[in-house]
Each structure stands twice: as structure tokens, then as C-alpha cells.
Design a binder for these strands. Structure first.
Lengths: 335, 335
DNA sequence: TTTTTTCTTGTAAGCCTTTTCGAAACATGA
DNA sequence: TCATGTTTCGAAAAGGCTTACAAGAAAAAA
């Protein structure tokens, strides 16, 4: 490979100064004669000149880059989220740096630090393990704008708010309408804000109909397929007619567990998920769920963040996103 | 936020030159007195000095970054692959830039270009749409090392080779051993090299037992859940006793389709997948599959690439990875 | 004491780009 | 002829870092 072509080479070849080249190539070259502009562009093609990324960033103080931290890339919910992020990033000529932290606090800290070192312009954090305060601390100190997902009450300036309370209510209404009165819930040990709110909405709506959800009916288990599977025993001791799994992954694991125990969904027990991942349509029985507009969430989060990056002093932005019930086959009338 | 602390500030505070600071902070400071070294380190802490990433890269001509292109982040197979990539990257202090191209050729080209602009040190491409030649062309011109996944016969120097032929054979053997003789296959329209080899192994082993697989028994459909679902009709017209879906995603879609047609898996028809994604253990019935060590693949691919980056002139590297049968519930004896 | 060696540190060039501030060159109007 | 305006372009600084090379001081050798 030959040495890299620099702006200097190009300037020399075109018989102009580096200033001229730089200006023209950056769309600020109206002041130059058409002839010069054409010549520069043509020679760029010929020589295959590509501005050096690092040199440019050094001056510009921005690499047009955002960091994105999700708990688990394997969860379709987050891969959909990422998809939204990538779409919006592309439109704005940003590049997302994506990391799955696998629910590991050490890893999260490592990535956040690494991203700061690498001078990302902003951060989207959809990860539960680090506390919001710790994040706020380190990022604010570094002057890096950020957005927290799944932390409706967090300290970040801009917010994208999903109506989790309504989501919980919808789930409750649906189960109530099918006649369920004895209901269990599967939740993780350290729920993020949105999950707490989700559960609150659920309980609240239940209570309105005179159905109490005792603490004992809330089975604690990790938010993964395995976690759902492992929660099976805990759920069964409650002998509920319906279970509300806090997300679809968990629901999928739980359904497998119930199946192994010889229970039929939904005739013996109804299962309600949350997130509306694409898999819901394929499993047997199809999983009833609450839909979150997750691709939109990714897009909006990205847009909000980039807006913030481009104008740090603008007013706080707020986006509200709706949820809706997706009734499928895993929920049915109580016997 | 206060202005960023530069190496100059730190040098001044410590009463030494920037050279001293630079050398000490980069582990090349044995020549300096212990006293000086301690002072510098301490003041770094106190002032919170972080070397400017771009300035450093400008000199070093490397951002310790690799690009990773996968067809679809939503497929657990690739999210596992990514996981391996991230693990290995972390160990080597590299950062992967990850992109899902959604099987879109335009998108792939866009990302490859963007990654070149951003001066990544190397590329891992596990994406089917761009031809291997096109990739080789553009990357070789830019002197960027790369590694192709799912392209066993590709032009890239280093290779990580999965024994897809054996994988196909294993699938065939398994179905044969259960007594199946009438078998269908679901494949995508433009299969990558590894898929072609996989099918060849499958056919070959079948042929050895005197079972022919006519072209008409190969149903063409995209490698997604939806693709598998849509292939159902095509499969059923063959009236096979077993189906080999070219990957698990496809198999999942197909199983849903078969279920809707009132067929029971495996008593009416056996379904065999490929990839051994985690979901296989959760669906009902559990999906029989061929396991590829995908996390290892991601790790090895990353390691190989980084080795290559660090020594462009070393001999070609080759890693062979095994496959194995994972018999589960979706395959059973022929009636 | 003088010379040589060993420790310890600093000077300055260079990486490649963007951008500020002018300055030639030329035409125009008085 | 001179002042003024317009068009077109360039010199040079700045950005923060690494590193080849030089050099001063102290210790050892002569």
C-alpha cells in the first residue's frame, strides 16, 4: 500500500493551497472560482483522498459518535431498540458504539469509561446495574450529554417516557376481563424504575376491582428466559390462574417451565408478557403481551440525544410514547 | 464544565516536561526517577487527566478499533457471535463497532465505507449481500485487514473454518437414523458459501444411504422466522416426513407454520435446525439442531483479526471449529 | 582535576486538519 | 490617477499528543 494521500498532496496537485482544498471539500467553497472547485473535486477522486479522521476530530472536537449501552443484545427487545438507534444515527451522520453489558456492573462501568476515553459525543444507557446517580456523576463531570432508558425518574435532562403505568394497567385489565382473580407476577430482584411503575399500574388496576396482589404473589427471578424458567416452581406454589411476567423473555422461560409441569397455557393458566417481541407471534401458544414501540424508542432516544449534543443549552426535551395491548393465545378465560 | 486538562497542564503542575509525562503514562518511564513517576501518577489522578483520544490516534495512526458487520442483530446466533467479539476485543483493548445490515446491500456498503472513513484497524464481515470480491477490492485498496465469516471459500487471508460439511452430514445421519427417507430442505435464494457446503454435506450423506434429494425438495425462502413460516406451504407439498431448515430461525418459523396446518412435530413431521441458539431449549417442542460454537467463533475471529492488525506480514492463520449434533424433541422416528 | 559514564530530563519536530485574518489581483467609478 | 470594491486565494496558528535527539547533572573512572 502506498502512503496515505494527505490534503497537502491534493493541494499541490491542484496547484492551490490547503486552505482552498479544505474549504471546498467541506462545502464552504462558494468564494472560489468554479474552475478551482471542479479541479479540486476531480483530483480528489483521482487521488482517492479521504480526510484523516483523527486529525479532523482533533480540530473539530467531535467524532460524531454516540455510545449505546444495553443490558443484553440477545434479547430481541434490545436488538429492536438498537435497530432504531442505527436508523436515526445514520440519518444524522452519527455512528453508534454499541455494547451489551450482560447485566454485569463491572462491565458496564468498563464500557462507560472506555466510551468517555474515546470521547463519544453522547451516551444512551439502557442498562440497569449502575445506579443513575453514579452515571450522572461521572458523565456530568465530563460534560457528556446522556439519556437514560428504563429510568423514567432518572436525573437525565431529556427523557423519553413510556407510559409504563398504563402498560401495567392494560395487562391487569386484560386479565381481569378474562375473569382472573388469583394472579402471580414474576419480577427481577432489582427492578429498574420503569418496572416498578409497571407493577404499580398493574396492582393499582387490580385493586380498583378489589383484587389484592400480596407480596408473596410476586416471584423474584432474573429477567431472562432462564430466569422465567426457574420461576416456575415459585409461581406454581401460588396456584394462580394467570401470571404476569414482567417481560416477554421471562414469559417464554416460564411457559417452558409450565409446559414441563404438565400445565396447558392458556387453559390451565394464562401467561401475560410485556414488550411484544417478534417471537411472540411464533411460539406456541402465541404470547399475549403489551407492546412498547421499541424501534421508535431507539429512534427518538437517538434523535433527542443528538439534538442535545448539537445544542447543549436548549430546553429539556420530552417524548411520550404509548403502549398497547396485544392479545394473543397465551391468555384465556378462567375456568 | 472547566476546560479539558491537557498533558501540558499536568506537566506544568508536576514541574516536568510533557515528554516526561507522556513517557511515564505510557509505561515507558523506567528511565525516570521513582519520585518523578509517583508525582506524575498522583497528579494525573488529582487533575483527572485523560489523554485526548484523537490527538493520540493522530500520532499513533490507530484507534484500536475494529468494525463488525452482521446481517441481523435480532438473530440470537449473531448476538452470541457479537458477545464473543466483545469479550475478545476487551481483552486486547480494542473496541468493536457493530452494525446490523438487515440483509440490505446498500446498508452494508454504507457501513463498510463509513468504517473505512473512520479508520478502523480491521473488519469482520459476517454478511451475505456484498460479494466477497467487492469487499476484497475496496478493503485491500485501503490496506485494511479483514475476516469473512460464513464465506469459507472467500479470498481473505486468515480464516476461521467451521466444518459445515460435517454439520450437514450430522443432520442427515440423524434423520436417516430415525428412518426418514422423504426429506425436504429450506434454503435462502442466495446462500453463502457455508450454506452451500452445509447442504452438500447433507445431500452427500443422504446419497450414501441411497436417498436422493431432488431439487424440488429444496424450498427457497429467506433465512428468517417469517421466511420459515412462509415456506410451510412449499414444504407440505413435498409431503416429507422430515425437514432440514438451514438455520434455527427458519426452523422456528416453519414449526409455527406446521402447527397452524395441524401437523404435530415430531409425530407427524420432524424438524431439524442449525445453529443451536438458546431458544431451542425453550420452544415446544425443543428444537433439534447442529451446534456451532458461535461464541468461540466470535472470539477467534476477533483474535485472528487483531493478530493480523498487529503484524500484517505474518503467515495466514487458520482456525478449525467443530460442529456437533444436539438432539432434542423436534425430531423423532418416522411413523 | 579531568574525562567518561550513567541518570535524568527537556527541546522541538511532526502527525493532518480547519480556520482566522488578510492580501493579492483586478475591475470600477470619480 | 487614486480610492474603493469584488473576487479569489494563501500563510500560519492551533489542536494535544508522541518521540528522536540533545543535553545537563551527578557519579565513577582515570
Amino acid at each position: 500500500m502506498t502512503r496515505k494521500v494527505t490534503i497537502r498532496d491534493l493541494a499541490e496537485a491542484a496547484g492551490v493551497s490547503v486552505t482552498t482544498v479544505s474549504q471546498i471539500l467541506n462545502g464552504k467553497g462558494e468564494r472560489f472560482s468554479l474552475d478551482t472547485r471542479r479541479r479540486v473535486h476531480q483530483l480528489q477522486e483521482e487521488l482517492g483522498y479521504v480526510p484523516d479522521f483523527n486529525a479532523r476530530n482533533l480540530i473539530m472536537k467531535s467524532a460524531q459518535t454516540i455510545g449505546v449501552l444495553v443490558p443484553n443484545l440477545g434479547n430481541p427487545f434490545f436488538s429492536m431498540f438498537i435497530r432504531g438507534v442505527q436508523e436515526a444515527s445514520r440519518e444524522q451522520h452519527f455512528i453508534p458504539l454499541i455494547f451489551g453489558a450482560n447485566h454485569d456492573e463491572k462491565l458496564e462501568s468498563y464500557y462507560v469509561e472506555e466510551l468517555i476515553k474515546r470521547a463519544v459525543d453522547g451516551l444512551i444507557i439502557a442498562s440497569a446495574s449502575i445506579t443513575a446517580e453514579a452515571i450522572d456523576n461521572i458523565l456530568k463531570k465530563n460534560g457528556i450529554p446522556y439519556l437514560l432508558i428504563d429510568q423514567n425518574g432518572g436525573p437525565s435532562l431529556d427523557r423519553i417516557r413510556i407510559d409504563d403505568e398504563r402498560g401495567g394497567q392494560l395487562a391487569a385489565e386484560h386479565l381481569l376481563s378474562l375473569g382472573h382473580r388469583k394472579i402471580a407476577v414474576v419480577m427481577p430482584e432489582h427492578p429498574t424504575d420503569n418496572l416498578v411503575i409497571r407493577l404499580a399500574g398493574f396492582k393499582e388496576r387490580l385493586a380498583e376491582s378489589g383484587v389484592m396482589l400480596p407480596d408473596s404473589a410476586v416471584v423474584i427471578s432474573p429477567m431472562t428466559k432462564l430466569g422465567g424458567y426457574q420461576a416456575t416452581a415459585g409461581v406454581m406454589t401460588q396456584k394462580p390462574t394467570a401470571v404476569f411476567a414482567i417481560n416477554d423473555e421471562t414469559a417464554l422461560g416460564l411457559m417452558r417451565g409450565l409446559h414441563e409441569q404438565g400445565l396447558n397455557v392458556p387453559t390451565d393458566i394464562s401467561v401475560m408478557g410485556y414488550d411484544d417481541i417478534d417471537l411472540d407471534e411464533y411460539v406456541v401458544p402465541k404470547l399475549s403481551s403489551i407492546r412498547q414501540p421499541v424501534v421508535t424508542m431507539g429512534q427518538q432516544a437517538t434523535t433527542l440525544l443528538i439534538n442535545r449534543i448539537q445544542d447543549q443549552r436548549q430546553a429539556a426535551q420530552l417524548v411520550d410514547l404509548p403502549v398497547e395491548l396485544r392479545q394473543r393465545e397465551s391468555t384465556g378465560p378462567v375456568k
